[in-house]
Structure formats: C-alpha cells, structure tokens
Amino acid sequence: MDVLVFFINKVLVAGTVLGSIYALGAIGATLIFGILRFAHFAHGDMMTMGAFFAFLIALVFYHYGIYLPVPMGFVVMPLAMLLTIAVALGIDKTVYAPLRRRGARPVTLLIASIGVTLMLQGLIRLFFGTGQYSFFDYGETKSIFRIDMSWAGARPITFTQPQVLMVIVTVVLVLILNFFLTGTRLGKAMRAMADNADLAQVSGINTQLVVRLTWVIAAALACAAGTMLSLDVSLKPDLAFNIILPIFAAAIVGGLGQVYGAIAGGFLLGFAETLGVFNWSTILRPLAGVLPDWIVIPPDLSLVPTEYKLTVSFVILVITLLWRPTGIFKGAST
C-alpha cells in the first residue's frame, strides 16, 4: 500500500498538475495555429506575462491586508486575464495584423512571434530582474491536504490547495471552452474557420472577429496556465522558454489545430515527464525478498535522470513528428 501511495504522490498528483498546465497552454497554441496558421512562439511569454500580472494584482491586495481562504492568485486571475487579453490584442494589432494584411507567409509570422517573445522577455526581465518570486512570500500559506491512509497501513496521500484548485479551474475552463465551441454560433464559426478559412469567409463569417476571439481565448488560457504554474512552483521570468517547447510538443502530439488533441497531448506529456524521471526501484522494493539473490535492484531505476526531465517531451515531440507528423488526432499543416 505504501508503494501505491508513493506512486500516487509522485506520479499521479505531479502528472495531473503538469498535464493541466501543458493542456491549457497547448489549447491556446493549437487554437492560434488552427485559425492564424502559425506556430505562436510568444505563447510561453504570454503565460509568464499573465502570471506577473496576477502577481502584481495580488500584491496590491496583500498591501491592503486582504487575505482570503483561497490563494489570492486564483481570485485575481480574471483581472490578470483581462490585462493579458488586452496586451495580446495590442500585439496582434501592431505586429501580426500588418504582416497578415501584406499576405506574409506563416513562417514570417512565426519569426515575428519570436521577435515578440524577445520583446516580452526583455520587458519582463527589465521590470522583475532574473530572480524568483512566490505568491506565498507575502503572508499567505500554501495549505497542504493529507488524506489519511493509516487504515491501509500507509503514509498519507498529500497534495496542496493550489494543486486541487488548479485541477478544478482547468476542468471548468475546458468545459466552458467546450460549450463555447460546440454550443454557440461564434464557436462554430471559429471551428469552421479552423477547418477552412476561405470557405468560412465566403460563408459570411466575420473572420476579423474570429481572429480577435482566438487571441482572447488563447491569452486568457495562457494567463491561467502561467498563474497556476507559478502558484504551484515559483514565478520566474525565464519560465517561458522551458514551457513553450513542451506546449508545442503537446499541441503537435495532439494534432495542431485540434483542441481536444491538445488536452490529450498536454496530459500525455505531463505524465510522460513525471513517469520518465520516476524511480521505479521503490516500486520494485517489495519484490526484493522474493527475487533470487543474484538479482539486485539498483537504487536508481528511473528511465531518465532527473536533469533530463524536459528532454522527455522533446524526444516524444521528435518521435511524433517523424512517426505521425499530423499528431495523434489529425492536425492541420501550413
């Protein structure tokens, strides 16, 4: 039983948390790809930016001594989302829209988005330096839940309050998105445009509106993902680059342009990363008494060393690209 609890603590909880964040980021990246047909590299920085907006707003609340039973980061998230959306729309208007009007190729937009990445990253570091920040340095405590497992003679299952809220928020956001995409006229227009932009336009769909809407959704989800990631671990200006590649990997594994694929890809990669660095020898330890003497279970049986955790995503990404470039669910291509 101890072994199972250990597995739940190390893999199930960590994988779900990481998977939710990847999924939220990947939905945004995949939507932008579906509608605007380019890989939006600045998505990781939009996440960092959203997290810093949330952090700043939370700081204001802390300053006035306002503390709530739930972490402030979650409460201020809608406000931070609004700010992130505003910035995203501004960037689209000043950078991407002129290029689109000129009829630039998608790859030009990709390079432009790298420019945006650099600008955002420069600005974020300009204001926040290169240090680490935490929402919980200002008087709030991260409450830890323990599910008592002593009836089974095992250690408790532990997770933190932000982790629970994170999963709830992810589920709620995905449900809202699902309702929007399948139940509303605009959502259907959006899916139509992702399928075939020209056909959507001649059918009278307001493509400008759909483009703006894409940015709204992508930015809001990016802000949520960034804030939740920084609530779970810490807030760092260079969060972005470590996260953008797994997110693209998730989006590609799920098939670019496919929202549900992105969710599946996000969780797949989240679990793959945690399972990759998971030390299997703990699981095998109970077998030690049964096995013959000449088999010794080594102390470290993880598939990849911890320092290669992120590499797991890249390897999966590369394998997917080579084996089935359109992703598990069939994706779009430029």
């Binding site: 990709l110 992120l310 390897v315 990404l317 430029t334």
Partner: peptide, 23 residues
C-alpha cells in the same frame, strides 16, 4: 530524420533537437 518536415514543423523539431543536444 527531420528534413521531410515542412516549415513550422521543421522549426519546432530542430528547436527540440537542439534542446536535447544542449541537455
């Protein structure tokens, strides 16, 4: 292994590979 991919996909694949090399 990667040159069969076009544009965006190649860009992302090469970034992924270079990050593996870096690690």
């Amino acid at each position: 292994i990667a040159l069969g991919l076009r544009s965006d996909y190649l860009a992302i694949a090469t970034i992924g590979i270079s990050e593996i090399i870096r690690a």
